[in-house]
Design a protein around this nucleic acid. Sequence first.
DNA 1: CTAAACCCTGTAATCGTTACAGGGTCAAGC
DNA 2: GCTTGACCCTGTAACGATTACAGGGTTTAG
Lengths: 147, 147
Amino acid sequence: MKRYYRIGEVASQTGCSPESIRHYEKLGLLAPPQRGEQGYRSYDQAALERIGFIRHGRSLGLDLHSIQELLALSDNPDTDCTAADNIASRHLEHLEERIAALQALAGELRQVVHQCRGGKAANCQIIQTLYDHQPTCTERGCGEVTA
Amino acid sequence: MKRYYRIGEVASQTGCSPESIRHYEKLGLLAPPQRGEQGYRSYDQAALERIGFIRHGRSLGLDLHSIQELLALSDNPDTDCTAADNIASRHLEHLEERIAALQALAGELRQVVHQCRGGKAANCQIIQTLYDHQPTCTERGCGEVTA
DNA sequence: CTAAACCCTGTAATCGTTACAGGGTCAAGC
DNA sequence: GCTTGACCCTGTAACGATTACAGGGTTTAG
């Protein structure tokens, strides 16, 4: 009576590409599913929900490692879930730092955008600014933002 | 009378690792420098400034491709610099979208953090939330944030 | 019966940086 | 002398998550 789904159906239902689903399996976030007659992966409802879990975590910006930890907690309902709180808190902190950094960048960019309307590159304020030395920090690895 | 610098000196002066400098050279952002007697790269002041330019661009979150375009403009001082403005504007727009997305994520996270103090994973609010279906968007590729 | 759409595996690309491996060169200290 | 450490060189692989192949098999609809 159980409904089973092939990977493509799972993809369209979860918004997760077949490649990613196979990837999660290879990484151990998903158990290898049963296989149909032709070797096609066959997922049940629980697998769908697990993929939804992963997807939701990713959409919150959690990395797959953190999601794996959360899944492990979920798989062992008796364990203390303080760890889950730690993962979420740590990520929130990380997010807040990143937001602050990006806001600083946006502010800096806003100051130079639209300063060089129709001019020549030789006088371009944007290019000039980039040549100017960084005001605050020239330490290695400082101020780099992955965005 | 010109001062020349080896790659390690450049690294400590610019905050850019030797590996990255060589990488920029391979990508064509830096011209291959002169070589000393032992084949060591030998940089002049102009190269230092160019690396500073790249570094400043990176610290603003620009990708190397955009930086390469800006350098090309800088190398041809007679060209119209509207292109530079476009690059900066496009990036600023991108940044603002990303900030908004991250703020939404942080808000969602704040709601679940500290909801499961000392409980068991079976009742953990964080894990429950992740299992809950995404409220707004389940489209493929939607809502994913690289952060 | 055939073409499109799906599935499989495995590998390589993306982006920017870092970390090797395996080798050469140069300085200071013993 | 001779060794140790700090540099430099090249080339390749790793990181994280996803995408894009290549090269092959299967299902399904027209």
